[in-house]
Protein backbone atom coordinates (compact mmCIF):
# COMPACT_ATOMS: atom_id res chain seq x y z
CA UNK A 1 0.00 0.00 0.00
CA UNK A 2 1.04 3.59 -0.62
CA UNK A 3 0.48 6.69 1.50
CA UNK A 4 1.14 10.26 0.39
CA UNK A 5 2.56 12.36 3.21
CA UNK A 6 2.90 16.13 3.38
CA UNK A 7 5.87 16.85 5.63
CA UNK A 8 7.30 20.34 6.16
CA UNK A 9 6.05 21.57 2.78
CA UNK A 10 7.20 18.50 0.78
CA UNK A 11 5.11 15.59 -0.55
CA UNK A 12 6.57 12.13 0.12
CA UNK A 13 5.27 8.73 -0.97
CA UNK A 14 5.72 5.85 1.46
CA UNK A 15 5.05 2.17 0.87
CA UNK A 16 3.90 -0.34 3.48
CA UNK A 17 2.94 -3.99 3.47
CA UNK A 18 -0.74 -4.85 3.97
CA UNK A 19 -3.84 -2.69 3.42
CA UNK A 20 -3.56 -0.23 6.25
CA UNK A 21 -0.98 1.23 8.61
CA UNK A 22 -1.23 2.74 12.10
CA UNK A 23 -0.31 6.41 12.49
CA UNK A 24 2.43 5.41 14.95
CA UNK A 25 3.93 3.00 12.38
CA UNK A 26 3.98 5.83 9.83
CA UNK A 27 5.91 8.06 12.27
CA UNK A 28 8.36 5.24 12.98
CA UNK A 29 8.87 4.65 9.24
CA UNK A 30 9.73 8.33 8.88
CA UNK A 31 12.20 8.10 11.77
CA UNK A 32 10.16 10.53 13.89
CA UNK A 33 9.57 10.36 17.62
CA UNK A 34 6.02 10.06 18.99
CA UNK A 35 7.20 12.62 21.55
CA UNK A 36 7.42 15.34 18.92
CA UNK A 37 5.33 14.30 15.90
CA UNK A 38 1.68 13.61 15.07
CA UNK A 39 -0.46 12.80 12.02
CA UNK A 40 -3.36 14.80 10.57
CA UNK A 41 -5.84 13.59 7.93
CA UNK A 42 -7.78 16.50 6.44
CA UNK A 43 -8.96 18.40 9.51
CA UNK A 44 -8.81 15.33 11.73
CA UNK A 45 -6.08 14.73 14.30
CA UNK A 46 -5.21 11.02 14.27
CA UNK A 47 -4.31 9.10 17.40
CA UNK A 48 -1.33 6.74 17.29
CA UNK A 49 -3.74 3.80 17.00
CA UNK A 50 -5.78 5.22 14.09
CA UNK A 51 -5.31 3.51 10.72
CA UNK A 52 -4.33 5.11 7.41
CA UNK A 53 -5.53 3.23 4.32
CA UNK A 54 -4.01 2.64 0.90
CA UNK A 55 -4.02 5.78 -1.24
CA UNK A 56 -4.84 8.21 1.57
CA UNK A 57 -3.10 11.56 1.97
CA UNK A 58 -2.01 12.73 5.40
CA UNK A 59 0.08 15.51 6.90
CA UNK A 60 2.77 14.83 9.47
CA UNK A 61 3.60 17.59 11.93
CA UNK A 62 6.95 17.43 13.68
CA UNK A 63 7.01 19.89 16.56
CA UNK A 64 10.77 19.72 17.24
CA UNK A 65 12.62 22.95 16.59
CA UNK A 66 16.07 24.28 17.26
CA UNK A 67 17.66 27.63 17.81
Amino acid sequence: MKVRVLYRGQWLELEFEGEKVKALELLKAMGLSRESAFVVRGEELLTEEDFIKDGEEVRVVNAISGG
Binding site: S36, V61, A63, G67
Partner: peptide, 29 residues
Protein backbone atom coordinates in the same frame (compact mmCIF):
# COMPACT_ATOMS: atom_id res chain seq x y z
CA UNK B 1 6.22 20.03 25.55
CA UNK B 2 6.65 21.24 21.98
CA UNK B 3 4.14 18.62 20.92
CA UNK B 4 1.55 19.82 23.44
CA UNK B 5 1.93 23.37 22.06
CA UNK B 6 1.72 22.16 18.46
CA UNK B 7 -1.41 20.14 19.30
CA UNK B 8 -2.98 23.20 20.90
CA UNK B 9 -2.10 25.35 17.88
CA UNK B 10 -3.54 22.74 15.50
CA UNK B 11 -6.75 22.23 17.48
CA UNK B 12 -7.22 26.00 17.90
CA UNK B 13 -6.90 26.45 14.13
CA UNK B 14 -3.78 28.62 14.42
CA UNK B 15 -1.81 28.89 11.20
CA UNK B 16 1.89 28.87 12.05
CA UNK B 17 5.27 28.39 10.37
CA UNK B 18 6.14 24.69 10.52
CA UNK B 19 9.40 24.96 8.62
CA UNK B 20 12.61 25.17 10.62
CA UNK B 21 14.61 28.40 10.48
CA UNK B 22 17.28 27.75 7.79
CA UNK B 23 19.98 28.95 10.20
CA UNK B 24 18.90 26.50 12.95
CA UNK B 25 19.86 23.41 10.93
CA UNK B 26 22.32 21.29 12.88
CA UNK B 27 21.76 23.28 16.09
CA UNK B 28 23.00 21.36 19.14
CA UNK B 29 19.70 22.09 20.92
Amino acid sequence: TEKENALYAFLAGIEYVEEECPFAEGASS
